[in-house]
Structure formats: C-alpha cells, structure tokens
Design a protein around this nucleic acid. Structure first.
Lengths: 188, 188
DNA sequence: AGTGAACCGGACAGCGTGTCCACATAGCTG
DNA sequence: CAGCTATGTGGACACGCTGTCCGGTTCACT
C-alpha cells in the first residue's frame, strides 16, 4: 500500500526529529544546517531532504502536536479558553496559553519561521481565525486589521527579545498582553 | 587627515546607494545580493564591503534621513506628534506617522532587518524610548512589557502582510492601531 | 527465497558570502 | 609641477550551505 510507511523509514524519521530537537535547543535556528541534522541523526542528506525540504518543515513537525493540543482546547475546551466566556476573557486566556507555548518551545517556533514568514505557516491561519471570531463577537468595527495587530506581539522574535534581552518574566508579558483586551471594549 | 573622505570614495558611495535603492525597490531584500549591488553600481565587491558589511547597513543608510525626520518631529514637533498632547493622542499620532513611514519605505525597512533582528537596529531603540515615555506618562503599571507589545504591530512583515496579502488600506490599519491607545486608559 | 518498489546516502554543481592583496589614484609636499 | 604615501579599488579566491541526482541497498509481500 502507498499509505504505509516502511519500518526503516519510520525509524529514520524518528532519529531525524530527535536530532533536530537537540540541535534546535542548543543553537539558533539559522545556525542549524541540514548537514548538522543529517550528521547527528546518522542519515545521509538525501534521506533528510526526502521528507523535509527545509529546516522549517522539521520544526513544524516537532511543534505540531503542541499546537494541535492548544487548538483543540480553543475549539472544545473549558471556558475561558474554550467557548462560553466573554470575548475579552477568552482573548486573555488565549494570550496566557500562547505565552505558555512560547515559553516552552520558543526555539521551535523560531525555527519554524526560517526562510518563510510566520504568516505562511498553517498555525498562523488558525490563530488568526480564532482571534477574528473573538473580535467580531466583541462587535468591533473593521475587525480584520485589528486581528493581526493583536497577534503581532506573539511573534517569537518579540517574545524572545522581551525574555532574553529585557529580562522580563512570562508573567509580566502576560499582564501586558492582557491589557490589550481593552481594545475589545465598546468605544468610539 | 583621517576624517576627510576622498572624492572618488564619496562618488562611489553615492553610486552604491543609488543602485541599492533601485534594487530594493524592484525585488525582495533577501534576493538582492551584494554582487547585484556592486554590479549595478559599477564597483567591485571589495569596494562595496569596505563601507557596508552587509545589505542591512545599506538599507539603514538609505532609511536614515526619513527616520531622522520623524524622530525630530517626535522630540520637538507640534502636538499631537510632539510634546504637549495627552499620551494616548500622542501614541495615536505616532502610529499614524509610522504607517506613513512604512507605506513609503516598506522595502527599505524590510531590507534593514535582513540577518539581524529589528531589535538590534538603532531605530528600534528610539521608538522604544519614545513609546515608553508615553506609557509611563499614562501611569500604566509595569510599563516595560507593554512597550514592545505596542510596537510589535509596526513590524514591517506584519504591515506588509496586511497590505499585500490581506489587501487592507493604510487607513484601516491606522484605525486598528489607534484602538490600541485604549491600553493607556486607566483601568484595573 | 525471489521480486519489485521504496528508500538510503554520498557525490556533485551552483550560488552567495566575506576576505585578501596587487594595483591605481587622490591629495599633500617640497 | 613632480614625487610620495596613505587610502581606496576591484576582482580572484576559498569556504560553507543548499538542493538534486542516481547507483546501490533494504524492506515487505508472495
């Protein structure tokens, strides 16, 4: 069958992912070369390129399950993250959850954006759709422009700068983000 | 004297800047190679590298005067951009001015960030200091984290995505940004 | 076991970067 | 105006990374 993956292929995929995770953890994404990954995983370049055309796809694969879990909770989890709470509270909960995600997997998120921009990743589309629903629910006029504005501070470069250079804590950042929910209040 | 620039050097600097401006205008920053610029300017690679170690420095040089002008107006211009108006209004004026800058020189701003991140550029430090003053003036507790959050939507990638992919107008984007000034309102 | 298909891995060519140095030229000096 | 020196110039060079390609190998099924 074409849907079945051969045993050796599966084993190599696992080794690649494991090696990539280690490398992404120890140095900046743009300094991790495809050669490094192949070397550390003990496979040849061709094998690596067969499945993953670039670094980004590897990081995406590593990130996938974590993002999936959060996406699931947004869609069907308990309020305030899931449906049922007021838009502003859901947005605040989303921010807190995203800070958690960034804190745990910053290098991976950063790695998933090498070469292409974050807007081209599938995940951005999901976050965008989610926040858009909240903005619309709050009755904000012209919601489209606001969505990306609200999502912008979650760019990994911004978070990394705040954490590593400025030395801010996740709590401080979350608090500042929570302040953004004021934009959903009815107003002029 | 060591402070004096030789005439031929000055002429070549002008040719390099002119060539780079044309190239940045016609294609994406990462597709403009140092070779392209040297070729178009009619100088050798060595000459190019002598003054500008990378693409970013060239874009910064091109951007310099535009940013300087805005910085001047922020410091000493008329309210609401300059001093004298309430913090929220000054922030709104700053956003509007930055949209103008991005709209006019998006490729340059983008180009000034190849390789390094925008936080390392001198300009970011200036915008940061300015917004920080406004946030502090508004009496927001824990201002530091909020500053970068407020600055994040001005990242050229975000603006470019909103304009080119989403098809939003500068006015729509400015309006959404203006909504962010609500974060300066006194609150819980 | 035998067979076809999928998979593996290293070699290869192309591209961009950044450095280096022999040569040329500007601008000072007598 | 001619000689001198520091500065500027330009192209050749070596290196590292990318992405592709193909001969050989291994798996899974019969």
């Amino acid at each position: 069958m074409s849907g079945m993956e051969r045993a050796d292929a599966a084993r190599n995929r696992a080794r690649i992912l494991e090696a990539a995770a280690l490398l992404f953890a120890e140095k900046a994404p743009q300094d991790v070369t495809m050669d490094d990954i192949a070397k550390k995983a003990g496979v040849g370049r061709g094998t690596l390129y067969r499945r993953y055309p670039d670094r980004a796809s590897i990081a995406v694969a590593l990130l996938d399950e974590h993002e999936r879990e959060l996406q699931e909770r947004l869609l069907r989890g308990e309020p305030p993250l899931g449906p049922g709470a007021p838009a502003a509270e859901r947005l605040a909960a989303f921010y807190a959850a995203m800070v958690g995600l960034l804190e745990g997997h910053r290098h991976l998120v950063l790695g998933s954006e090498v070469g292409r921009s974050r807007f081209e990743t599938g995940a951005y589309g999901f976050w965008r759709a989610h926040v858009r629903v909240l903005v619309v629910a709050a009755g904000v006029p012209g919601p489209d422009a606001l969505v990306d504005v609200l999502l912008a501070p979650l760019a990994p470069e911004v978070y990394g700068y705040q954490r590593s250079v400025l030395g801010l804590t996740p709590e401080q950042i979350t608090e500042a983000l929570t302040r953004l929910t004021k934009t959903l209040d009815p107003g002029p």
